[in-house]
Design a binder for these strands. Structure first.
Lengths: 204, 204
DNA sequence: TTCATTATGATACGAACGTATCAGATACGG
DNA sequence: CCGTATCTGATACGTTCGTATCATAATGAA
């Protein structure tokens, strides 16, 4: 047997190059040659592992989804570990929402790539499919947290958890887009989020 | 003097072709030749009026902004005219928010084009400038309406108009994106909007 | 060592695209 | 009718890009 290589790992390495280029110069600027150079491999190898550019983009999106979910769950468990014992639902929810804002360069890049993929998926059914395979939407998670908060009497009044979660999640996405564009500042956005958390949970 | 032509009108006509192509096939698929064919003019004329493709895209965005503002104000005045006398702030606000949802093919196309431009503007400062020239952001308008509603005792409780407007507007944008992707249905989105309007204005 | 797997290099083909150029047609006000 | 503004047509150049091809090197388990 010859040299054994983790093909999946290779593909992830090349997919990461796609993310970097897409974040820095837009998804339109992603081409096979630049991806190869960014990944530090030959053009031939990119062809070898992905066959076509379309395949490359689709798989890069799948890997991005995977990483995003992993990081989100890791962040939540980290928050739970920081405050041993009883962590208030409000604090956890706040961290979950922050996860979808460009709070640092890494989150900023991820969001830029996601939005680029989103727009392209509007005209590419195959990419759209890669988007919509999210079996557990974020809205359900947030709605579940709100229901849980209601049962533990953390909420200030009776609410419709689904409706609240829908606007909260969609709102955070929209606010994140404004942040990317420089139309808002992070302080202001966090102020808005905290205002609405206070509206739900009462004064902290 | 020879034939007199409204240059600005010609440019708008060609810009409309850009919108149609961008809505149907994405902004990446917009090229000078297809724009000319869609507008029913020669490639040479597109070059004649816009010089470069970059100019074409920037001006097409400016015209799109203009049309959007005109249609929004027209919609508001139409609502005010429909209910002579006292039109509740809630009803007007609901129509304003609906204006940013893909409620029909026309709004759907406009939203698709806007989002495509948004993503491209993240890597194109000149396009970003065309975006950010909005002297009167929608959030200010909504916040003003909420303040006005408070003064006329239409609100159910004391609120922070700015914070409420920020989440409402951002939320509608985010919900509109979900609609485009088919992740939500219009009925559900309107239900969410009405829920939050009720939260602010009380039962209708 | 052997040999299949992994990887590179060089190159080429065809298509799409932005841009430029030149000639000429059309139409309308004076 | 004349002249100018408006518009078309054909064409071409250079670049970029996806994809394909062929030869060849490096690697490491059997």
């Amino acid at each position: 047997m010859p040299k054994r290589v983790d093909h999946d790992e290779r593909r992830r390495q090349i997919a990461a190059a796609v993310w970097r280029i897409a974040a820095d110069h837009g998804l339109d600027s992603v081409n096979m040659r630049d991806v190869a150079a960014e990944a530090g491999v030959s053009l031939r190898l990119v062809q070898y592992y992905f066959e076509t550019k379309h395949n490359l983009l689709v798989l890069a999106l799948r890997y991005l989804n995977e990483r995003g979910e992993q990081r989100a769950t890791a962040r939540i468990t980290a928050v739970l570990a920081e405050t041993p014992g009883a962590t208030s639902t409000r604090v956890v929810l706040r961290e979950v929402l922050k996860e979808f804002l460009p709070i640092d360069d890494e989150h900023r890049d991820t969001l830029r790539v996601y939005l680029a993929y989103y727009v392209r998926s509007l005209n590419d059914p195959e990419l759209a499919a890669a988007f919509l395979t999210d079996e557990t939407p974020l809205e359900d998670l947030v709605a579940g947290m709100l229901d849980q908060a209601h049962e533990s009497h953390e909420l200030v009044c009776r609410i419709d958890a689904k409706r609240e979660a829908d606007l909260l999640v969609s709102g955070v996405n929209g606010l994140g887009m404004d942040l990317l564009q420089g139309r808002r500042q992070l302080d202001d956005v966090m102020g808005t989020i905290d205002y609405h958390l206070t509206r739900l949970f009462g004064e902290p």
